[in-house]
């Protein structure tokens, strides 16, 4: 299974990521997901979210999740991009792609990855309000 992980302050270029997709001929499903910063967090209007990572542990935990995915589904490739630092409203903070032979496996593995990430990967967010300097 090919595993590509990027944790970076750089904006996520979805078109460039899609253009770099590689699938072997046996693969029939490419599922990708973009997590985008919402304006409203409860009653608060945000201009963005500031993401902080404990990077070494975040990378390690992502790779543990990738290993668990490989055990459960015939995934050929997984790519994850997670931004750190300030991400403004309407921009993607997360991009995930899973390639597998069939859509059921690809959707399930993608959902698993995101749920596990939210429980285990050492990244935290802090909403920055519209009124903040």
């Amino acid at each position: 299974m090919i595993r590509t992980l990027t944790i970076s302050p750089d904006p996520i270029d979805e078109a460039a990521l899609v253009a770099k997709r590689r699938m072997s001929q046996g693969m029939g499903a490419a599922v990708y997901f973009a997590g985008v910063v919402r304006e409203m967090e409860g009653e608060r209007a945000l201009k963005g979210i500031d993401y902080e990572a404990f990077r070494a542990m975040a990378e390690h935990q992502f790779h543990l999740i990738f290993a668990a995915m490989k055990q459960r589904w015939p995934v050929e490739s997984v790519r994850v991009v997670h931004r750190i630092g300030f991400v403004q409203v309407n921009e993607a903070s997360l991009w995930v792609e899973v390639i597998a032979p069939h859509r059921g496996e690809a959707f399930a593995a993608c959902q698993f990855l995101i749920e596990e990430m939210k429980a285990k990967v050492t990244i935290w967010k802090r909403g920055i309000e519209e009124t903040a300097a």
């Binding site: 993401y51 975040a58 997670h82 990430m117 939210k118 050492t122 935290w124 967010k125």
Partner: peptide, 10 residues
Amino acid sequence: VSVFPPVQGG
């Protein structure tokens, strides 16, 4: 040792 609140990636 690292000490932190629940994680919130995504």
